[in-house]
């Protein structure tokens, strides 16, 4: 028995009146998409998990296209919990984001929680056209409160004008050698990153900064990438502290 196969799709485009329209907005299976209220030129979409997902064996995907000049913000209604399926098969969750010239995308989902016994491989692939702007947050929580983490591998690949800008893969839980050790997490249960891509960084690259070295409150650094982008890398004992570290200002 295989799990659910579902792909949600949306496209954002300028509406011709200074705002952003959503000519395509199609949920699928456990992934429902809702347009939420917004003021100004930006359209807001919330991904609503209509059932518990992903389960082992599921193949979920979200494809979002932001056409040139449009502005879109996507969030999720709640944390995504990766759960074990009946068969022990791995679940897949693939997010593909395409941002056109001078378009803006905020991809700010709630955390991904790897429950005990789960096995998920998640990929987030972002294609940015020249002049595109992106604010992207990723948070992974290893296990629900008091339980061991499941298996979780997340890959974030960001290309700008077709060239690689950021490529990061994090693997946690059973079968990821060394993940709990002093080189990777050292007992922290939450890891995350906040990526900001903005053409303005090309002229004024951000200065690297240690945001926190406090082991109890979590550790984080802000760094300039090799292109026009800034990244916060953070690890923390829990999701609350992680979110606090990822909320530091990174404006160009």
């Amino acid at each position: 028995m295989t799990g659910v196969h579902a792909t949600a799709r949306l496209t954002a485009a300028p509406d011709g009146r200074g705002g952003t329209a959503l000519p395509l907005l199609t949920g699928d299976g456990p992934l429902a998409l809702r347009r939420t209220r917004s003021a100004g030129p930006e359209a807001h979409v919330t991904v609503v998990g209509a059932m518990s997902a992903p389960l082992g064996g599921d193949r979920l995907a979200i494809e979002a296209v932001v056409e040139p000049g449009a502005a879109l913000r996507i969030g999720t209604a709640a944390a995504t919990v990766s759960l074990p399926g009946r068969t022990g098969e791995q679940a897949r969750y693939d997010v593909r984001l395409t941002v056109g010239e001078d378009a803006v995308l905020h991809w700010l989902p709630e955390p991904l929680i790897a429950a005990e016994g789960s096995d998920l491989r998640m990929t987030t692939t972002v294609e940015l056209a020249p002049g595109a702007r992106l604010v992207l947050r990723e948070e992974q929580i290893l296990g629900r409160s008091g339980e061991h983490p499941g298996r979780l591998t997340t890959r974030l690949t960001v290309r700008l004008s077709g060239r690689p800008l950021l490529d990061q893969e994090l693997s946690f839980g059973p079968n990821a050698p060394g993940w709990a050790g002093p080189a990777v997490l050292h007992g922290h249960r939450a890891a995350g990153q906040l990526l900001v891509v903005d053409p303005e960084y090309a002229d004024k690259p951000i200065e690297p900064r240690v945001l926190s070295s406090d082991q109890a409150e979590g550790e984080a650094v802000l760094t300039p990438l090799a292109g026009p982008a800034a990244l916060i890398t953070a690890v923390a004992p829990d999701g609350l502290r992680l979110r606090r570290l990822l909320s530091a200002s990174v404006a160009p």
Binding site: P164, E169, L170, A183, V184, L185, V210, E219, V221, V235
Partner: peptide, 22 residues
């Protein structure tokens, strides 16, 4: 193509490197 090359990262190694540099 290059995308199949591994990209395994260790957050603390990145954090250590920036701490150490200061």
């Amino acid at each position: 193509g290059m995308d199949v090359l591994p990209a395994a990262s260790a957050p603390l190694l990145d954090i250590y490197a920036e701490q150490h540099a200061t």
